[in-house]
Amino acid sequence: MNEYNINHLRELEAESIYVIREVAAQFENPVMLFSGGKDSIIMFHLARKAFAPAKVPFALMHVDTGHNFPETIEFRDRLMKETGTRIIIRYVQDSIDQGKAIEETGFDASRNKLQTVTLLDGLEELQVDCAMGGGRRDEEKARAKERFFSHRDEFGQWDPKNQRPELWNLFNGKKNMGEHFRVFPISNWTEMDVWQYIYLENIDIPNIYFSHERDVFLRHGNLLSASDFIPMRDTEKIEKRIVRFRTIGDATCTGAIESEANTLEDIIEEVAATRTTERGTRHDDKRSEAAMEDRKKEGYF
């Protein structure tokens, strides 16, 4: 056995820290997008590792749809306070009030797509030249084609057919005025890697990732959390179930799964045995075969 051996999680960690440091070195005004979900939590954890003992040299940014799980927001605020980190919050509700975004109507209405408007406005207003996101290539087939350093034109659009080649670990962050970059430090992580790393590093995550009792109802095969901002059809009935969330996104389009897993070990075993992808609980991806590609082209993360 070679003595200079590190396991795959440490290798992924080293790669992500390298990417985050490149961002700090190559850009003037980067932000790290933070939703309070597990991917952005580990990305932030990696950023803290990258710059210790100094503080993270950029702000976090949250695009708030207003349709949150309250547990996530509490978690976010506590983490920011404990680590002394600055977070910029931009609200989808403001974009709607300003007439820049129009609320979808109907039972399946979601603010997921509207986030793009708020995000792009926020980046422009704050003159952000690079936004780091917790997107992973294993999540979805359009994301599988993403670069670590992904160039966006002045409209924030992604051109998947004309991406810059990315070689070795040499990242080209050059751009013209008005353009920006999206950078994905955890591109090469899978859902399993994320959970194992959370376990390995003992990282705190919102409690709704663990099994709990919740009022839910069934829609399109997903268990949605009953809440004031999701209108229900007459045929849909609220019931109590033991569930947990595999992903945390906008509450209108994030489904829960029935699960008894209430420790990280349980979750890891559950993920290993699961036969559907985590995006399978995401309603927003089911709208069409290229739903994610289309949203990304418009400037979604």
């Binding site: 294993d138 087939k141 359009a142 599988a144 084609k145 090469n188 899978t190 075969e289």
Partner: peptide, 27 residues
Amino acid sequence: TDGLRAEREQGITIDVAYRYFATPKRK
């Protein structure tokens, strides 16, 4: 593996796609 709309329409692979799998020994 052909993730982009144009790839599926034309039945070709346009760009590098990254895929992941693991066995108990390796990722």
